[in-house]
Write a protein that binds this DNA or RNA. Structure first.
Length: 478
RNA sequence: CGCGGGGUAGAGAAAUGGCAUCUCGCAAGGCUCAUAACCUUGAGAUUGGCGGUUCGAAUCCGCCCCCCGCAACCA
């Protein structure tokens, strides 16, 4: 009997469609894609989710501003995300949109379960509403009784809401986190969450009476589900919750959920508490990466330094953008990116490094071996450390390991001087080139999760067994 | 005391108690298989400051200074 393939479920956040995708969205998605591809190569039964979050007051407003219906608006933006991911060679297995029927029915079922759990109660939210903010603000934020940003006096508003007893979940969450049953990485993020829990959790309103663009509460259609609660549940609805129980049971719980650091409280407190309330297992791990600055400045629509990933892909190719983002900044830390830095890595690491090594090697194979490397050797170097690093999301570390071998190969060639050796000991040159071919083949294999297209090019040429000097892998820019 | 990240060569990073390492840039040399690429060597850092612990501190402790992000479009 066949052994059952290990399942592996990985997620990205679903992106809020109030604007088109930028480089930060791409970063999260690329990272998840690399891990998904790695686990597929390891033979696992992988499900890789991504999608868009399409409800809420902000979307309705943005649509109005664009003179579109909310549905037209979200259709258009959601398509831009899906297009960007195609351009970046993202290998997601499905793309969930929160306006899809399958999501709405799953959320309705989930909320009914939540209500039946007894962890939901009706209450009244009373707070100071600032019209400028279009949100409730805290009394402690006021300066001289007015909102410091808008210099207006907030209104006291009473709102009927349904509440979730989040306050009951502090101890159990703390325990699950501390025992690593529910892993939060990097550790600084785990500490952040634990200290937040220690301050005490408050119940949260899970419905909104005034937001029309949303999913109605099954038992109180006057109210819609708070967007975050609904959005989080996409991780279950995409794998068939309430529709295809077999599929759902196969993939849930998520093995790793990747996201940027700003949304860890939702994912590390509210999300697991909701799951506990309805008796669903918690995800195994949450991994939060850092933020980018661009040329030293924070990403800001006002400053206008927002990078459209499509622009970089068009100019440098998907593989180069994927490589650059993962190589430049250690995953989990904040970092700075810019097109200038991308260019330096592209020319230095890709064109002069990997590209040139491949070029000089294949050229010598054509010249000295008549293109014949059918029986190329196994790699003379052990590159398994690269995948070890990728599997723990230490992408930059894994890439450094691979590039160390590229440097080693260049040194080896210079030391061996095959262009001289070929005159006296051609069989030694053959041995050298077969070894180099083995190394390049291994490098391509290890690089495949990060640079799938380049890996395929290299392997195809080597596997052909009859090597002619190929086109450069990376044409230098400028 | 709002929360968080950080300060190491000109730039970017690594090193978590034991010779400060790497990449880019710079300088000199070498090589000619290669995409003006590649290889070697060198210059360049009293590790933000002051104090403490220690045989020994970039690393541990205390105080201080500075930068950045979040808190408000935004992963």
């Amino acid at each position: 009997m066949d052994t059952v393939r290990q399942k592996f479920y990985i997620t990205t956040p679903i992106y809020y469609v109030n604007d088109k995708p930028h480089i930060g969205h791409a970063y999260t998605t690329i990272a998840a894609d690399v891990v998904a591809r790695l686990h597929r190569l390891l033979g696992e039964d992988v499900f890789f989710q991504t999608g868009t979050d399409e409800h809420g007051a902000k979307i309705a407003q943005a649509a109005e501003k664009a003179k579109q219906t909310p549905q037209e608006f979200v259709d258009e933006i959601s398509a831009k995300f899906s297009f960007a991911w195609d351009q970046l060679d993202i290998s997601s297995d499905d793309f969930i949109r929160t306006t899809e029927p399958r999501h709405k029915q799953a959320v309705a079922k989930f909320l009914t379960m939540l209500k039946d759990s007894g962890k939901i109660y009706e209450g009244e939210y009373e707070g100071l509403y600032c019209v400028g903010h279009e949100a409730f603000i805290k009394e402690s934020d006021l300066v001289d009784g007015v909102c410091p940003d808008h210099k207006t006096k907030p209104e006291l508003i009473k709102e009927k809401n349904w509440f979730f007893k989040l306050s009951e979940y502090g101890d159990i969450l703390k325990e699950r986190i501390e025992t690593d049953e529910f892993r939060i990485r990097p550790y600084t993020r785990q500490n952040e969450v634990l200290s937040f829990i220690k301050q005490g959790l408050e119940d949260i309103a899970i419905s909104r009476p005034n937001v029309k663009w949303g999913i109605p509460l099954p038992w109180d259609p006057e109210q819609t589900v708070y967007v975050w609660v609904e959005a989080l549940f996409n991780y279950c609805s995409i794998i068939g919750f309430g529709e295809d129980e077999e599929k759902f049971r196969n993939y849930w719980p998520a093995d790793i959920q990747v996201m940027a650091k700003d949304i860890i409280k939702f994912h590390c407190i509210i999300w697991p508490a909701l799951l506990l309330a309805v008796d669903l297992p918690l995800p195994h791990a949450i991994f939060a990466h850092g933020f980018f600055t661009i040329g030293g400045q924070k990403i800001s629509k006002t400053i206008g330094n927002v990078i459209d990933p499509n622009d970089w892909v068009a100019k440098y190719g998907a593989d180069a953008v994927r490589y650059f983002l993962l190589r430049e900044v250690p995953f989990g830390q904040d970092g700075d990116v810019s097109e200038e830095k991308l260019k330096i890595r592209y020319n230095g690491d890709l064109a002069n490094g990997l590209g040139n090594l491949f070029s000089r090697t294949t050229n010598m194979i054509e010249k000295y071996l008549d293109g014949d490397v059918a029986d190329f050797a196994v790699s003379p170097k052990d590159l398994s450390a690269a995948w070890d690093a990728f599997s723990t999301l230490n992408f930059s570390e894994g890439l450094v390991k691979i590039w160390e071998e590229i440097a080693w190969a260049n040194q080896l060639i210079d030391k061996a001087k095959p262009w001289e050796l070929v005159k006296t000991e051609p069989e030694k040159v053959k041995e050298l080139l077969l070894n180099l071919t083995g190394l390049l083949y291994d490098i391509a294999g290890k690089l495949a999760p990060v640079m799938p297209d380049t890996a395929n090019k290299i392997r195809k040429i080597i596997e052909s067994g009859d090597i002619k000097k190929p086109e450069p892998l990376f044409q230098k820019i400028e």
